[in-house]
């Protein structure tokens, strides 16, 4: 590597420059976080995995349903939700998005790049909001497209038994959009968790615990308690919005997604308080 300082470089106007230009604005922080998100291979591969599992699992589940449909009893036929069957991949995709959300922030702590980030944006909080906004938006848009593809592909399979539904049928758009919205909020929740614990392994464990383990733990409680608790758990509340036939025990779709969003907001708020208080 050969390097030289160019002789005769014009005298810098650095003092004047610092006075007027280069303000850190939220839009600029958003752009920086967008560059960071798209310049990591892990982002690409995890999102590819999420897209794949949603579409593939939708095809698998709908094919299985079609295969067994002639032998399916009336009660089960009545419970069958064609849109949800084609979007079963949600349960796996939430894990991929949860992991990536945690890594978006803990990767910076693990590598030390958080110090570069915080020296560029010393107010710190814009970084957290921008990470949540960029990752939430990317997840929502990508998963909306994925959800639509999975839905259409799944309904095409189901049409063999004429049990498919159309995108325009009542309640169906909510399910298709709801899957993307649930995943986007999951991603933001994961960023909040990651920012609180600042450690990938711990963050992923907590996100999985919240989404997967907590509902199982509650199952072990006395039945009278379960009914009051289960519906308010993050994953249960959020998924209420994605179910075509709302369950009697669950929150209403709108209340459910609001409760889920509040979980994410509370986690992000805790992260914000800690981010301001702690040394970077």
């Amino acid at each position: 590597m050969s390097t030289t300082i160019t002789p005769g470089t014009p005298a810098p106007d650095f003092a004047a420059r610092a006075a007027g230009r280069g303000r850190v604005t939220f839009v600029r922080v958003l752009r920086a976080e967008w560059i960071k998100l798209r310049s990591l291979r892990s982002t690409f591969w995890v999102l590819v995995a999420a897209v794949f599992v949603v579409i593939a699992l939708g095809l698998l589940v709908t094919s299985g349903t079609v295969d067994r449909w002639p032998d399916t009893g009336a009660a089960e036929r009545a419970r069958f939700s064609a849109p949800n069957a084609s979007l079963t991949g949600l349960y796996l995709a939430q894990l991929a998005i949860g992991v990536l959300g945690v890594l978006v922030i803990t990767g910076e702590y693990a590598t030390g790049s958080i110090r570069a980030t915080m020296s560029a944006v010393p107010h710190r909080l814009p970084v957290l909001w921008a990470k949540a906004a960029v990752f939430g938006a990317v997840t929502f848009v990508l998963m909306l497209v994925t959800s639509l593809i999975a839905f259409l592909a799944g309904q095409a399979v189901l049409s063999k038994e004429h049990i498919d539904v159309a995108l325009g049928d009542p309640g169906v758009p909510r399910v298709v959009v709801g899957v993307a919205l649930y995943l986007a909020i999951t991603g933001i929740l994961a960023i909040g968790v990651g920012a609180v614990v600042r450690n990938a392994a711990g963050g992923i464990a907590i996100v999985f615990g919240l989404l997967l383990v907590l509902p199982q733990v509650v199952q072990a409680l006395p039945t009278a308690w379960q009914d009051h608790i289960t519906r308010y758990l993050p994953s249960e509340a959020g998924q209420a919005f994605t179910r075509w036939h709302p369950s009697a025990d669950a929150l209403s779709p709108n209340t459910g997604i609001t409760v889920f969003a509040l979980y994410a907001a509370a986690t992000l708020a805790a992260a914000a308080v800690l981010l301001r208080r702690r040394d970077a």
Partner: peptide, 28 residues
């Protein structure tokens, strides 16, 4: 202020170009 705090305060999975580009973006 330009700072060099410790070698490689950079995400190991990112290229040098993208690291600098993201830093540059924060301030236009």
């Amino acid at each position: 202020v330009g700072a060099l705090l410790e070698a490689k305060a950079v995400h190991t999975g990112r290229s040098a170009y993208h690291h600098l580009l993201s830093m540059a973006a924060t301030t236009g």
